[in-house]
Every structure is written in C-alpha cells, then in structure tokens.
C-alpha cells in the first residue's frame, strides 16, 4: 500500500510535469504558427516582387520598342534635319516619365537626369534644324536613362523583400568623425541616397560627368570651398575594398555607386590642390 505522503508528492511531481509538457506543446504550437505566418508573408513579398518585375519589364520592352524605331530612323535616314525624330524622342521621354513617375519622384538624381535631357531636347526643338550628331547624342542619353530607370525599378522591387545594412562614416576633417553603423538602405540604393539618410546634403549636378552626375558640396552645413584656383577643401568619398583591405577613393559619382550589404563607406572633408 502506497503511503498517502508519497502519493501527495508523486501527484505534485506529476502536476509539474503535466504543466511543463502542456506549456511546451503550446510553445511549439505558437512557434509553428508564427513561422507559418512569416512564410506566408515572405511568399506574399516574393509574389509582389515578381509582379513588379513583370510590370517593369513590360514597361521597359514597350519603351525599348519605341526607342528602337527612333534609332532606326536615325541610323537608316539620309536626312540632315532630325527635328521630327527629336519631337518623337520628346514624346518617348514623356512616356518614360509617365511610366516611372513614382521612381522619379523619389530619386532626385534620376529626376535631374530626366530634367536635363528634356531641357536639351526642348532647346533643340525650339531652335529647329536638329543635326544628326545632336540627335545621336540625345538618343544615347535616352538609352542610358531607360536602362537606369529599369535597373532602379527592379532594385526598388527587391527592397520589398530585403534591406541592406551599411556602415557610413563622415569625417569632418577637424577630428570630428561620426559613424552610422548598420544603417538600413534599400537594395539598389546609391551612395548619394544613403548619405541623405544620415545627413543633410547640398550638391551640384553635372550633366557632362559620367558615370554619376552628382558631386556633394556640403554635408550637414560643412560647405566645400576653394582657396584661389589651385586648392581648396571638398567632400571626397571612399569605399572599403575587401580585396585590398583598405579604403579606396570613389571612382565614380556618388549617385552611380551602388551599395552592397555590409559595405563601409566614408565621406571625408579633405584638402586638395593642383600641382
């Protein structure tokens, strides 16, 4: 016969084990529910990305078909006046702007490129008698713009699924160095977009400069300045080169440099001089 006291303690132990087992079941149920929900959300994001990809490609193909017709009229025509095709190019630019309006609204550098191209186009149309060379140049710029638009659109679609984390450093040149580690940016963001997330900037757009048209003139009110014609202080950017294991000076305009996950970028206010 089991003693009452033993029975009591055995029951207590059973109670504890029962509680732990049921809590454990609840825990796994909840974990399963949460992961199912996350999977569903991920699938939804991937679907949304696929839809945006298809949309972007459809728009791109349509614009490229129109561009191809313009290019045909350029390469096959024996005319010397390209005013009429320039007008068609202007229309194509209209379509591109309409199709990528939200992207242009959010990306200043692209908007500026578009604006510059439109300005050139309209100036030539106003003057009339557009030459073959002038039209060829416009065509080239339009082609670059279309490609850039679709790349940015695809990047923007990717940002619905993932984000990048970068490290940004601003060295003010007076021993004040600020780090912005693990800054979240969308995939396909340029360094120009990233610096605007952590600082207030002023910049100048150079239409002739390629790749990338933007040069920063001030970060957080620290303005560049020249001392005469041969020297001055400017904002120069660097990126961390994994192969060389050192910071390397940026080879292109900051609006053309695409960021990578875990990348380290530095803006330094530094002295320059011509020999």
């Amino acid at each position: 016969m089991v003693e009452k006291r033993t029975l009591l303690f055995a029951s207590l132990l059973m109670f504890v084990l029962a509680m732990l087992t049921s809590s454990l079941a609840g825990y796994f149920y909840l974990q399963n529910a949460v992961s199912s929900e996350q999977n569903a959300e991920n699938l939804q994001s991937i679907d949304a990305m696929a839809t945006r990809y298809n949309d972007a490609m459809t728009k791109y193909n349509k614009l490229l078909s129109d561009y191809s017709m313009l290019y045909g009229s350029y390469s096959l025509s024996q005319d010397t006046d390209f005013t009429l095709p320039t007008d068609s190019l202007n229309d194509l630019l209209d379509h591109a702007e309409g199709n990528f309006s939200s992207l242009l609204a959010s990306q200043k550098d692209l908007n500026e490129t578009c604006y510059e191209l439109r300005g050139k186009c309209q100036a030539l149309l106003a003057r009339g008698n557009v030459t073959r060379e002038e039209f060829g140049e416009l065509l080239n710029e339009l082609y670059e713009l279309l490609n850039l638009l679709v790349i940015r659109e695809l990047n923007s679609a990717m940002s619905e699924v993932t984000t990048l984390a970068i490290n940004m450093c601003i060295d003010y040149g007076n021993e004040t160095v600020k780090w912005y580690n693990n800054t979240d940016v969308s995939p396909g963001s340029s360094l120009f977009q990233a610096i605007q997330k952590v600082a207030t900037v002023n910049y100048t757009y150079y239409a002739w400069m390629k790749p990338g048209h933007i040069r920063l003139t001030a970060i957080n009110d620290k303005e560049e300045y020249a001392i005469g014609y041969s020297e001055g202080w400017s904002w120069i950017w660097y990126y961390w080169n994994d192969d060389l294991q050192q910071l390397v000076s940026g080879p292109v305009g900051c609006d053309a440099w695409m960021l990578k996950d875990g990348g380290t970028y530095k803006w330094r206010f530094e002295h320059w001089s011509w020999p």
């Binding site: 504890v16 732990l20 809590s23 454990l24 609840g26 825990y27």
Partner: peptide, 16 residues
Amino acid sequence: VFTALAYGTPFSLVHV
C-alpha cells in the same frame, strides 16, 4: 495568457 505561458516555457524548463 497563452502567449506568456508558451513563451515562458523554455525559461520555465531551465528554472524547474
């Protein structure tokens, strides 16, 4: 209650 009990389980196991 369910969430608190369930998420407390791993800690509870170690504790007990």
